[in-house]
Amino acid sequence: MANVKRSPWLLHYDASSCNGCDIEVLASLTPVYDAERFGVVNTADPMQADILLVTGGVNAQSAEVVKQLYDQMARPKVVVAVGVCACTGGVFKDCYNINGGVDTVIPVDVYVPGCAARPESIIDGIVKAVAIFQERSDKHDKYVKEHGESARDTSDPDAAARDGNPADFFNALGKKPQEHTDHKEEK
């Protein structure tokens, strides 16, 4: 089984954050905290990322983007919500345009609390996410082993996380909640 936990690449998206959490995410890559010693790379490309870090609550404009970024990432993938806004909506929870946390759109695996989340706890969250990433990758490898190399494209180790994913937000918007397309149409 491939050892993937040494190479988690992050994709950071600001859903509607006040920038407090974003600064802290970047801080965790600076000399003081240096997340790169774990092999973390802050990539800007969803196709190359393994872990999606979302800061800020989800609103009408960012919901589609968050979902699209999630769908564009190669499996296996892990989602981390950074800051209370991303976890639940935080102080903006009752605003007219905020739906709530990231988990109203995509499944979230790790919740990092704090306003703003401390770099220490962000790194902690990443380390937790890395463990989940390894677990899913093993599942993915096992599936590929059983079903042949072509199954690398079809194996979906993240499916369990998506079960029961609320789609209220899209209902509230009067839109039909879209299926998680997850590259299917590209095949």
Partner: peptide, 19 residues
């Protein structure tokens, strides 16, 4: 990162879904 980091990265990339 460790000196062998590029090899870890490549190993992971091969393990991922092909897009």
């Amino acid at each position: 990162p460790p000196i062998l980091q590029p090899f870890y990265d490549v190993q992971k990339l091969f393990a991922k879904q092909r897009i």
